[in-house]
Amino acid sequence: MAVSVKDVARAAGVSVGTVSNVLNRPAKVAPATVERVHAVIAELGFVRNDAARQLRAGRSRSLGLVVLDSANPFFAEVARGAEQRAADHGVSVLLGNSDQNDERENAYLDLFREQRVNGVLLTPLSGDTVRAAALAAAGIPVVLVDAEDPDGSFPSVAVDDVEGGYLAAQHLLATGRRRIAFAGGPASIRQVADRLEGARRAMAEVPTATLEVIETPALTVLAGRAVGEELGHRAVGDRPDGVFCANDLLAVGVLQGAGILGDLRVPDDVALVGYDDIDFAQATVVPLTSVRQPAREIGVAAVDALFASLSDPDAAPARVRFRPELVVRASTGG
């Protein structure tokens, strides 16, 4: 039989209310009493019924986090940052992976609403914020992560991806590359579109340069490998001499695909730039030049923005924008 709060109170010689205070408001209880109650809890193996507590309080001790791809080390670092800051508030993070799928994203948002989470950190698949607005209307604040709301209706924490795309393409141009390819997709993902826009701005500054857009079905190593193999099959004159990938996973795949054929060398034949600067970008066979995003700091700032919204719902939504940083390595001759 499960041990109840009454059992703990009886064994500790205190009231049920005192046990409740020890669990939820320990500052209100004498330290000696807190110690005694915790000793009894450990001895009896008491586990609190958090589901019942949530129903009474109308709110859980958790946050929801929905990302595009939990297998991407960038989003793993965002989640670590969010967990680190949430723990400071005594709250846990429930992670949902939309896998770049609208239905899965919506299913997680519905689940988190049912769980009565304190709030949701969301990396939306598209610019549509209708579902986020529905959560906010239900009293569950939403913070956009690695994304921004053009209307400014939601707090957001992001990196200036247009500037990041500009830095990547500008660097390729500065190394003398003139036939540039951009690999990324689907194009409906805002981060992809913004990074491409930045690349186009840099290309416009060099009239003799050309930009080829290669849309990929996903932002994965396998998708990048297919791009690398396809480029390797082209005639030498038809190949780009520089490739900017929308994230590091694609860039790793391009590097692998080029190496499979063996006659497309990085950076001799093609310079390669990724995005995110995940940990193993510098550990590939040819270390990757990449545009760095402060992933963990993004997660921390998102939780801070959420709790700011919880403490003052009428305050103007926070808009945090980090600046990207180009990290030059061997894949572009650095």
Rank of each mutant, 00 (worst) to 15 (best):
residue 5 V to K: 15
residue 9 A to P: 06
residue 14 V to W: 11
residue 15 S to F: 07
residue 16 V to C: 01
residue 29 V to C: 12
residue 31 P to T: 02
residue 33 T to A: 10
residue 38 H to G: 07
residue 50 D to H: 10
residue 51 A to I: 13
residue 55 L to K: 03
residue 61 R to I: 00
residue 63 L to A: 06
residue 64 G to N: 01
residue 69 D to S: 01
residue 69 D to L: 09
residue 73 P to Y: 11
residue 75 F to W: 10
residue 85 R to D: 04
residue 87 A to M: 09
residue 90 G to W: 07
residue 93 V to G: 07
residue 95 L to K: 02
residue 99 D to V: 00
residue 100 Q to R: 14
residue 106 N to V: 12
residue 108 Y to P: 06
residue 114 E to I: 03
residue 114 E to L: 12
residue 115 Q to E: 06
residue 118 N to H: 13
residue 119 G to C: 02
residue 123 T to Y: 03
residue 127 G to W: 02
residue 128 D to K: 01
residue 136 A to P: 01
residue 136 A to N: 04
residue 138 A to P: 06
residue 138 A to G: 04
residue 141 P to R: 02
residue 144 L to M: 01
residue 156 S to N: 05
residue 162 V to R: 15
residue 162 V to A: 14
residue 164 G to V: 09
residue 168 A to F: 13
residue 174 A to M: 08
residue 181 A to K: 10
residue 183 A to K: 04
residue 188 S to L: 08
residue 194 D to M: 11
residue 194 D to Y: 02
residue 196 L to S: 09
residue 199 A to L: 12
residue 200 R to T: 05
residue 206 V to W: 00
residue 206 V to Y: 04
residue 207 P to I: 04
residue 210 T to H: 08
residue 210 T to L: 04
residue 212 E to M: 00
residue 213 V to T: 12
residue 214 I to N: 06
residue 216 T to Y: 03
residue 230 E to N: 03
residue 230 E to H: 10
residue 233 H to V: 00
residue 234 R to A: 06
residue 234 R to P: 08
residue 236 V to L: 10
residue 239 R to N: 02
residue 240 P to C: 13
residue 240 P to M: 11
residue 242 G to R: 04
residue 246 A to K: 03
residue 247 N to T: 05
residue 254 V to K: 12
residue 254 V to W: 05
residue 255 L to T: 13
residue 263 D to G: 07
residue 264 L to I: 12
residue 266 V to C: 09
residue 280 F to Q: 05
residue 282 Q to W: 02
residue 284 T to R: 10
residue 285 V to G: 02
residue 286 V to Y: 14
residue 287 P to K: 06
residue 289 T to H: 09
residue 296 R to C: 01
residue 299 G to M: 08
residue 309 S to W: 05
residue 314 D to V: 07
residue 314 D to E: 08
residue 318 A to R: 07
residue 328 V to E: 06
residue 331 S to L: 06
residue 332 T to C: 15
residue 333 G to D: 11
